[in-house]
Design a binder for these strands. Structure first.
Lengths: 262, 262
DNA sequence: GAGTGGTCTAGACCACTGT
DNA sequence: CAGTGGTCTAGACCACTCC
């Protein structure tokens, strides 16, 4: 076993044993760790890189290496879809009480903070194919960032796409100032006469791009979960596509499948 | 921008332009790349580490650095569950034709290779809580590795847990030589009088442990997708728990949720 | 400015692969 | 054995954070 692996194992074990608690600073690379492990700086740094990739340690330039704080786990279910659909036709007073994300996380609306930005884009090949429209068709792109009020980093960055000509039947849908919308997207679609019958969600994971690592406050080496949600109406047409980016180290997605009885 | 980043960008661009095709060998670290980029070996290696983490380059000790061959994407749906349930009561001849993984991937049974290992374990707190049995209860742990016949790395490593006293009602279930079992787990459960009514799947992602990176042939830096599948029978009891580990860079999971009509 | 991490060098030696 | 990547060293200098 290589020296840097032994050092990484040693540090990992010392952290697990509680020698340094979450949020605490590790000894400095130079001179403390190099002296303690009788290794050169590059070797110490290679060991720390292993721990950073595992998400055990946070490296902060100019300050030090810190034991990573566990972050609040975020759960996302697929039962939220039926739940949201059931609420879409209820009066505003009821819809205003809570949203699907609050339903999943067990929080109240005031615990969460939203940020919404809208813009018009032209459908690329990917989106045009999904919506069944020509490339270049005007789409409404809505970007959201959701975070806990008490944290400063979003746990969810998403982009939602609608065909602009469909959405404009209700001008309020084009206005970001109307967000957060009580009742969520399914109520929005209800106001323009659309009922969803099926939602398809595709999940993949990969290392974050530099931009994503920045947005979600994750280190390179902690993965991002990508969710593409495709909403079908009762005619089987695609009416909404969303791409959601979530930090892999604090997100759990739950999908429940009911089976027909024999 | 750091020198190693510039070198990584340069190499990435040369690979994208087709200067070296998938499977081809890059110039040697020493002396070729160090000379070409006028950089020291550690700097060249840092640049290559970036490309390896992105999955662009495969590093092979003693041979060289190679442009990574794209691997076959593996798709896993949740429709497989109902599909498998529908087949569970069909005659063996029918069940033998194809399995759920083949259903998802569009392959035939002969394209896939299985490896199964069984052992008895005692329920830890986690599993005991799920099954609703005392800690220490005997469980049957079945470990599977699934791969394409033409590749040498599994795309799926899974462990399935059953309560041993429940499984032993059919002694064949305790025998790894009976695998692969035509009709899959749902038929196995059928032979001991169990019908599933609901399947819950929890998805998370994280960096691979050293062992997982080894098993799935992914480099540290490419994430693993973890799926915990919990099967409930018609009485709402947990009858099977599976933990599936998949390489994040080649797996896509698709979950479809049907909504009740208004 | 002191402390600390980030980058880089030049070179040595080990470990693995294929001839 | 030659070729190639893997590990490690000692030390220099730069960049960021905080006082």
């Amino acid at each position: 076993m290589a020296k840097y692996e032994k050092i990484a194992d040693g540090l990992r074990e010392r952290i697990r044993s509680g020698e340094w608690l979450p949020g605490e600073k590790l000894p400095s690379e130079t001179p403390e760790l190099t002296a303690h492990y009788k290794a050169s700086l590059p070797t110490i740094r290679q060991a720390l890189a292993v721990l950073a990739a595992e998400g055990v340690v946070d490296k902060v330039h100019g300050r030090g290496n810190y034991v990573r704080e566990p972050r609040k786990l975020v759960v996302r279910t697929n039962e939220r879809h039926q739940w949201e659909k059931d609420r879409a036709r209820q009066p505003e007073e009821e819809r205003r009480k809570t949203g699907a994300t609050e339903h999943d996380t067990g929080l109240t609306i005031s615990d969460l903070v939203f940020d919404a930005r809208f813009r018009d884009i032209e459908a690329n090949k990917d989106l045009a194919g999904l919506f069944g429209v020509p490339v270049g068709t005007q789409l409404l792109e809505r970007s959201y960032r959701t975070r806990y009020r008490e944290e400063d980093t979003p746990f969810n960055v998403s982009r939602s796409y609608l065909v602009r000509d469909v959405a404009k039947a209700n001008p309020d849908l084009l206005n970001p100032a109307m967000e957060p919308w009580p009742g969520g997207t399914q109520h929005q679609l209800f106001t323009i006469g659309i009922e969803l019958s099926r939602i398809e969600e595709r999940v993949t994971a990969r290392p974050p791009t530099a931009e994503e690592a920045e947005d979600l406050s994750i280190r390179a080496g902690v993965s991002v979960l990508l969710l593409r949600k495709i909403c079908y109406d009762t005619e089987g047409r695609v009416v909404e596509v969303s791409d959601v980016t979530m930090p892999g180290d604090r997100t759990e997605m739950v999908f429940t499948t009911s089976l027909n009885r024999w």
